[in-house]
């Protein structure tokens, strides 16, 4: 991890090691409290993707892809889509598509409002993994030999 040949300088690496866990924790907080406070799956998913992009920019792509590999990110993207569709289809059993069928609970609590937190988690998986995949592809793309001369 401390290979000085890859990535940025020692200062950036040290700060990254201290802050990246806090950024991931903030993303998880934004996702899980999306139905009682500002936030939600979209913003939280982008923050989770940014925490891994932070590692990728500071340490280089080998370390970042060791933490969360391409297959794991692909798995989470598919998991988000399948989780959303499954939760939506379960509503058909007691009514119609996308029905919020379980108990609403007491308002202003973390475990309330039925299926909305689960939908938030599914959306955050999908957005976070998808943006991380897009960024990995854009960063690791190398131009062919002909244009490297410029």
């Amino acid at each position: 991890m401390d290979n000085p040949k890859h990535g940025m300088t020692l200062i950036v690496k040290t700060i990254t090691r201290l802050t990246v866990g806090l950024i991931l924790l903030f993303g998880i907080y934004i996702v899980s409290h999306g139905h009682v406070s500002p936030g939600g799956g979209f913003a939280g998913g982008v923050i989770i993707a940014l925490s891994f992009i932070h590692i990728l920019l500071a340490f280089g792509k080998e370390v970042a892809l060791k933490r969360i590999s391409y297959n794991v990110a692909s798995f989470f993207e598919s998991l988000g889509a399948i989780m959303f569709i499954t939760l939506a289809l379960l509503g058909i059993g007691s009514g119609y598509f996308l029905l919020n069928f379980i108990s609403k609970g007491e308002p202003f609590r973390l475990f309330s409002s039925g299926l909305i937190p689960l939908y938030n988690v599914a959306i955050s998986f999908k957005v976070g993994a998808g943006l991380f995949i897009i960024f990995v592809i854009l960063v690791t793309f190398r131009l062919t030999k002909k244009d490297d001369r410029e």
């Binding site: 009682v36 500002p38 959303f84 939506a88 039925g114």
Partner: peptide, 24 residues
């Protein structure tokens, strides 16, 4: 109806959840 305190979240994920499906 939804039990969600944040009304934007309740619209995005309950009343107009087809929008979110299309966005995904």
């Amino acid at each position: 109806d939804t039990g969600a305190t944040n009304l934007v979240s309740s619209i995005v994920l309950d009343y107009r959840a087809y929008d979110t499906l299309g966005e995904a």
